[in-house]
Design a binder for these strands. Structure first.
Length: 816
DNA sequence: AGCACGCCGACT
DNA sequence: GTCGGCGTGCTC
């Protein structure tokens, strides 16, 4: 038989090992090992987990430099189905090039966290270890008793004996072993299977003594399900029978009691809702080209620009339905924040059990279970946040990205991918259709659409021809002149009062992007900052502490200012509590539901609060941007933005865009149903174009004006950006290092490319490491990615030596 | 990244 | 003379 070679990417996320390693596939693994399999391989002295990215059979005369004699063998295959498809492996390769990350890191982004292997080193007792020898040391004693001890445990409990290990090792008293820990657990539950026929069971039930009532009930219940496993838990709940009863029946040989993997929803096959949805004229218009593209097959991409309330979701669902009808599958991406039960219900209601939902609320195990339904090809539609773009569907026909402009589609850790780009790659690869939708598309996407890269589809009318809400802009400077020092303008005050009288609901929004609660002295202005990072500490109300959310440094909230001893040291920030207090003062008896970090930190609290509001248990929903999107409450007729310009003056070239998007989205929350809506925007800069255009729901005017700014200042979409950041404990080494890289780049970049820096990063120190950065702005630099890859390799060794960390972010979203 | 191997200072 | 510091180099 010809030897089979597997190319394996091992789980070592550094550039030195960022290449396939060759292994021999032992004969007994040939039937189960596939491209995409998760395997365990020997690697140097250790064992590691890895992924098979290719197989090669060495037939006689195969031209290769591989000598199978010199290869080591694959030790194990870990799953019965490979967790990665060949398409995803190709995607991982593309991502590692595109985003300059190790191959394995891209693979890890695609699969559930529990599939990441963890190698553990163990110390194992050997034959030479006798009781007499073991008397010498506590560790040897422990080893003799237990046979093996984890090295980690040795470090913790027997640190003094670590130096002795090599001697013992060569004396043959012990050996070291490596184990790859598989964290996968399959949820097990007890199942009961009737081993008798229907009639036999009924007969036995009759023959049982009178007092054996519980057994009789079980037999009667199980009779029609002969041979089918039924969950024991279900029997217990339904019939009130206890464990011993089932054990007794099993002892008689009438039933089988066993642990089985949980069977999920075997009978929950919901029917597809029939396709009798009525569409608005505009929905029909945009659906036409989409339907045509799906029908034809082949790559097509659309930007669906639809005002809030125009019924974009219905368009997505129709497209998904048609995709399924063609026998293909769909991915539906939504921002994490709009992955609400409401949304999930809507999709599940339409496609029932064919839907898998992936969101951050799931535990690692639950996430893995849901993902496994996809890998087993039991679902056709995957709904989820960013990482759902990697769903291992094999016949992908459609990808929908809702709220395309949301920056949560960009991952802010390695691999720093953008789900939109990955979606484009997968749609192309699968000859599928991509639909991106938004009321406020990102400038990048809209610009490409105007140039024909995406087909632009527009819906500018709301469903049912409901008018867009009336937007009232209030100049807070004038309020101050009118001696109104409250945070509510007269207009907003009156409207709140009126809603309360009518029994209608109100959403109040505090725009605080980029700020959290910080602690400041009102006497001298001193702000509590972290001693390890150059940022303000965040106040935590629950335990009255101030905490750094970068490194975890925590201090007790001081009673007096450390600087001037004043007792006027308070926390400032989101101010939702302050708004709440003010509301209660002005409108006694008002019921406020506050949503902020404090009230939503508990799991499920988010949904619970929204639910209470929906049921009318609150007059006001008060919160930060987490309430801005996707929510749809019929009785909300007033939306107030307390301070619109807080996000306008951030040092981020997208500040105006983000503000416009937020205001437009918030405005879209009002009057979505029968009742008309009003929006009140309070601002100190009513003349600012992002506020002016948001007021008129005028995306196009905003787009044009902002594009001029971007052109003038040289930012996307006119220029593309690469952010290279560095960190080191010592400032001189850091600056020197960043400068060296800058010089390297300067010598290789085209003159049209702008290189900014090195300069200190906006947060100049985190976890006692100083931070510097370089920014590249370029328009046309086709070889840039390759060149950055070369740069990485060129400096790899040197960076390690200097203990410098360097990070490259292609098309960065967050410049803060 | 680990881990092993290998070459120079302070201890029994 | 040895123990142990961490510099250098490799992992199919």
């Amino acid at each position: 038989m010809n030897p089979v070679i597997a190319k394996v990417i091992v789980e070592v996320p550094v550039s030195r090992t960022n290449r396939p390693f060759d292994y021999l596939v032992p004969e007994w693994l040939l039937p189960i090992l596939r491209v995409g399999s998760r395997v365990i391989v020997p690697f140097g002295p250790r064992k590691l987990q890895g992924f098979v990215i290719g197989l090669l059979e060495l037939a006689d005369g195969t031209e290769t430099s591989i000598d199978p004699q010199k290869l080591r063998e694959i030790l194990e295959v870990e799953d019965d189905l490979p967790p990665l498809t060949e398409e995803l492996l190709d995607l991982a390769e593309w991502m590692s090039k595109q985003y300059l990350c190790p191959w394995i890191t891209a693979i890890h982004a695609m699969i559930p966290a529990v599939l990441k292997g963890k190698t553990e080193r163990w110390v194992v007792a050997a034959a030479e270890l006798t009781a007499e020898l073991a008397g010498q040391s506590p560790l040897l004693h422990e080893l003799l008793r237990r046979g093996a001890v984890a090295y980690r445990e040795v470090e913790q409990q027997f640190p003094d004996e670590i130096p002795l290990l090599p001697g013992w090792l060569s004396a043959g008293w012990l050996t070291t072993e490596y184990h790859v820990k598989d964290r996968v657990t399959h949820k097990q539950a007890s199942y009961v299977t009737l081993l008798l026929t229907d009639e036999e069971a009924l007969a036995k039930a009759d023959s049982l003594p009178k007092q054996a009532e519980q057994m009789r009930r079980v037999l009667l219940h199980l009779a029609p399900f002969s041979g089918q496993p039924i969950a024991a838990k279900e029997l217990g709940e339904l019939l009130g029978v206890s464990r011993p009863t089932l054990k007794n029946l099993a002892a008689k040989g009438w039933i089988r009691l066993e642990q089985m993997e949980v069977l999920r929803n075997p009978y929950a096959h919901r029917k597809f809702a029939d396709a009798k949805h009525s569409y608005t004229a505009q929905q029909q218009t945009v659906l036409k080209p989409i339907a045509q593209a799906i029908e034809q097959g082949g790559f097509a991409s659309f930007l669906l620009h639809g005002v809030t309330g125009s019924g974009k979701t219905e368009v997505y669902l129709a497209a998904i339905e048609q995709t399924l009808a063609k026998g293909k599958e769909a991915i539906f991406l939504v921002p994490e924040i709009s992955l609400t039960p409401q949304m999930v219900e809507r999709v599940k209601g339409r496609f029932g059990n064919l839907v898998a939902v992936l969101h951050s609320g799931l535990s690692q195990g639950e996430r893995y279970d849901e993902w496994r339904r996809i890998i087993r090809q039991q679902v056709k539609v995957v709904v989820g946040a960013r990482s759902a773009i990697f769903a291992p569907l094999r016949n992908l026909g459609l990808i929908v990205i809702d709220e395309e402009h949301e920056n949560s589609y960009k991952q802010e850790e390695t691999p720093r991918y953008h789900a939109r780009e990955v979606a484009l790659w997968r749609a192309r690869q699968n000859h599928g259709v991509l639909i991106m939708g938004s009321a406020t598309p990102s400038l990048e996407t809209y610009a490409l659409a105007t140039r024909g890269r995406y087909q632009l589809l527009t819906m500018n009318e709301r469903v049912g021809n409901r008018p867009l809400p009336q937007v009232h802009v209030v100049d807070m400077r004038e309020e101050l002149l009118k001696q109104n020092r409250s945070m509510f303008s007269q207009t907003l005050y009156q409207m709140i009062e009126q809603r309360l009288q009518n029994g209608e609901q109100i959403v109040l929004f505090l725009n605080r992007r980029g700020f959290s609660t910080f602690v400041m002295c009102r006497s001298c202005g001193y702000t509590l900052t972290c001693v390890h990072c150059d940022i303000s500490l965040t106040y935590h109300r629950t335990n009255h502490t101030a905490r750094c959310h970068y490194c975890g440094y925590t201090i007790k909230q001081p009673d007096h200012c450390p600087e001037c001893q004043s007792s006027h040291i308070r926390f400032f920030g989101t101010g939702t509590q302050k708004v709440e207090e003010e509301l209660s003062r002005l409108f006694p008896g008002i019921r406020v539901i506050r949503m902020d970090v404090d009230t939503t930190s508990r799991k499920g609290a988010h949904e619970e609060l929204l639910d209470r509001f929906r049921r009318g248990q609150g007059d006001v929903l008060l919160g930060t941007q987490m309430i801005a999107k996707g929510l749809d409450f019929p009785r909300v007729t007033l939306v107030g933005v307390i301070a619109a310009d807080t996000s306008l003056h951030l040092p981020d070239f997208r500040a105006a865009e983000k503000t416009f998007q937020l205001l437009t989205q918030v405005g879209g929350r009002a009057g979505r149903h029968e009742l008309r809506g009003d929006v009140v925007i309070q601002t100190y800069t009513p003349e600012h174009y992002s506020i002016r255009h948001a007021t008129k729901h005028d995306y196009l005017s905003f787009y044009e004006e902002e594009m001029l700014n971007r052109k003038r200042t040289g930012y996307p979409p006119y220029y593309r950006l690469v952010l290279i950041s560095f960190s080191h404990e010592q400032l001189p080494v850091l600056i020197q290092g960043a400068q060296t890289v800058a010089d390297y780049l300067k010598a290789r970049l085209q003159p049209s490319t702008i290189l900014l820096g090195p300069v200190a990063s906006p947060i100049p120190r985190i976890k006692d490491r100083f931070r510097f950065q370089l920014m590249l702005k370029y328009r046309d630099e086709p070889k840039l990615i390759d060149m950055l890859g070369q740069m990485n390799r060129h400096f790899d060794e040197w960076l390690k030596q200097q203990q410098l960390l360097m990070n490259v972010d292609i098309d960065p979203q967050m410049l803060l």
